[in-house]
Design a protein around this nucleic acid. Structure first.
Ligand SMILES: [Zn+2]
Ligand SMILES: [Zn+2]
Ligand SMILES: [Zn+2]
Ligand SMILES: [Zn+2]
Lengths: 133, 133
DNA sequence: AACGCATTGTTATATTATAACATTATTATT
DNA sequence: AATAATAATGTTATAATATAACAATGCGTT
């Protein structure tokens, strides 16, 4: 039997490194531009690395922004249970780490008969800084 | 003073009509293709109508799918508080109308000092049908 | 009529993402 | 070590999604 991958490949490391160093979401093509000096020449190389990193929870995609951010919750137990706050003025994005919220949402059921295995939540508003302007 | 728009323009009506008749999310270019017989020839005409319709809550964007769906909550009080369930197998999307959930999320606060004015939540899983396959 | 503003029409272009195919690397099994 | 299975890479081209820029029109208000 083939084991699940437990290491990161060269391209995956390069992309993750770059995304982790940023403290804001990055666009795929901005990542591409910045890792070209490291040998990743084509969009697909970045997208493939991102796909894998998202799959294993090291990176999350901010869907409303088409941007990618490194996971801030160690070990990323919550890769299938993500929540973010997004400032609509300065675009600052923060990963929300709130166990009550994640418990509430992970246990959420409605009358649809559907059992949810995953969710993504994005809150919008003005951050402290922008509110006081 | 100019009043806030309370009617829909020609293009907006055409697009909304079309989206309402579908009971699934539609892609912008599929909408375009289907309303070309009604005179909307260019992507921008569709995107502009969609923008406005999203703004006033008649239509919601399913961010993880880049697709648009008509609001199912009458009067759309919740245009800034949206929740959807998405089947990862058949891609069926349902707007969740659950007052406990919306109350919980609308009142959610964390220690970031941010007051959220809007949220979008997407649940993923398998719908009843797909689960029993 | 004159103004302000939303909407429209149009062409071009930017941005985001995937298809297809050949090759190489890694790990597991024999 | 050879084989097979799986994952990752490299590359070119193209698909899908979305916006810029600018001119024109429609409509309610003054
Ligand atoms: Zn995370
Ligand atoms: Zn801000
Ligand atoms: Zn709605
Ligand atoms: Zn289904």
């Amino acid at each position: 039997m083939v084991q699940k991958q437990e290491y990161l490949s060269k391209n995956q490391k390069i992309v993750l490194d770059h995304v982790e160093k940023a403290n804001q979401p990055l666009k795929a093509y901005s990542i591409l531009y910045n890792v070209q000096k490291k040998g990743l020449k084509a969009p697909l190389q970045v997208y493939r690395a991102l796909d894998k990193l998202v799959e294993i929870g090291k990176i999350h995609k901010i869907e409303s922004r088409n941007a990618f951010v490194a996971c801030k919750n160690s070990n990323c137990i919550v890769s299938n249970a993500t929540a973010f706050s997004i400032c609509e003025s300065c675009e600052k994005v923060t990963e929300i780490n709130n166990s009550k919220l994640s418990k509430y949402l992970s246990n959420f059921e409605d009358n649809s008969g559907m059992k949810y295995s995953k969710y993504n939540l994005e809150f919008f508003g003005l951050c402290k800084k922008c509110k006081n302007k």
